[in-house]
Write a protein that binds this DNA or RNA. Sequence first.
DNA 1: AACTTAATTGACAGTTTTACTCAGGTATGT
DNA 2: ACATACCTGAGTAAAACTGTCAATTAAGTT
Lengths: 142, 142
Amino acid sequence: MRMSTKAQYAVRAMVNLDLHSGGQPVALKDISRREDISQTYLEQLFVKMRRGKIVRSVRGPGGGYVLARPAREIRIDEIIDSVEESLVPVSCMDQKHGCQCDDQCVTHNVWQGLGEKIRQFLASITLADLTDEAREKLEMKS
Amino acid sequence: MRMSTKAQYAVRAMVNLDLHSGGQPVALKDISRREDISQTYLEQLFVKMRRGKIVRSVRGPGGGYVLARPAREIRIDEIIDSVEESLVPVSCMDQKHGCQCDDQCVTHNVWQGLGEKIRQFLASITLADLTDEAREKLEMKS
DNA sequence: AACTTAATTGACAGTTTTACTCAGGTATGT
DNA sequence: ACATACCTGAGTAAAACTGTCAATTAAGTT
């Protein structure tokens, strides 16, 4: 039961983006350096997050990425969804129809309930919550 | 974020064991047939669950496995722990000391909180809850 | 004692997923 | 033109997952 580094990187990168953007685009090169994540790998993640409508890209010199919406309106579960990490703990429940388990499958309810708890928790936190927290920690240091 | 089939099999096997044992040992061969899980794979899982003190083994003819404690006292998180599936979502938090993240690591709190939610949910369900539910479903059918 | 059942153990192997890299290409500002 | 920075798809090494196989030990039955 591990959250993939892909999802972990995506959340870290989004916090870093929000923290260092002043409305201006932030280049992946800078996020890469600050978070020590390979730039080419970040590119993969940001393409997906752009398709997920949580960031917008600005091409050319001085370009980079910008949040597509205010940080207060971006939830953590959206970030993880956009990089295609499933939050449902068992594969048979990926489709919307629900799984084909017959009535004997009592463990089904356990995984379904667990999935709902996970979703609920990650949807209760916004990107702004994390950047605020990061700012406080940076101030404590100085 | 997937629960491994190992953990899923372990829970299913335990429900099946509890459901079909009348205080008598249940052979893996029978669980294997009823749940359609390879017997040799089940052997691996039950060795670990025996070491985890949630089942006891009875060798020889008529032998098999028995619950080590009443089903009401066996929680689902214990079953998953015993087959060595981590419930902590990120690897840096496996040790008890906590991870070496410095203060900048704001995402740490997210994963820690998530891990606690997962643990809390799976600890709130006992094996007896599941077997009761399974019994009800079987009665509905007949 | 011989035989059968069933747990026990350790080694090993195929497949899938993860976590990347690499080689290009495209858009845009100076 | 030229530099910057996003964009795309293919490829790949390592790890994890999901098992199998062979051989052994223990205990009951005949």
